[in-house]
């Protein structure tokens, strides 16, 4: 069986769904963050697959920028989690109810 663009899109969609489930189901901020990274990666796979399909490099350049922004985002987000931990001594979302309506 030959591998087509659709195969890559399906794998990417499934990985995105896994990340979405992780964000909804898990209650630890760090694991939620990892699931977010997985969703970003799924989008990257789509871009690279389309780049291969269209024989065009622009998709790969976009993935390059996405990876850079994701690295910056992880650094800032983890610093926020550490700052939060210093004040509240927890990383569980269930314990952070100040903004709860």
């Amino acid at each position: 069986m030959e591998i087509t663009l659709n195969h890559y899109l399906a794998v990417s969609g499934l990985l995105f769904t896994l990340g979405l489930m992780g964000v909804i189901l898990r209650r630890d901020l760090l694991v939620i963050y990892m699931s977010l990274e997985m969703m970003l990666n799924a989008a990257n796979l789509t871009l690279v697959a389309f780049s291969r399909f269209n024989q065009h490099l622009d998709g790969q350049i976009m993935v390059f920028f996405t990876i850079t922004v994701a690295a910056a985002e992880v650094a800032v987000g983890l610093a926020l989690i550490v700052a939060l931990y210093r004040v509240r001594q927890t990383t569980k979302v269930g314990d952070l109810t100040t903004l709860k309506f």
């Binding site: 087509t4 659709n6 024989q55």
Partner: peptide, 17 residues
């Protein structure tokens, strides 16, 4: 949905990467 999505990728020439 995707038109041409069923073309095997191995048949397309690779982009200059």
């Amino acid at each position: 949905g995707v038109p041409m999505g069923a073309v095997p990728l191995a048949k397309l020439p690779p982009p200059p990467s």
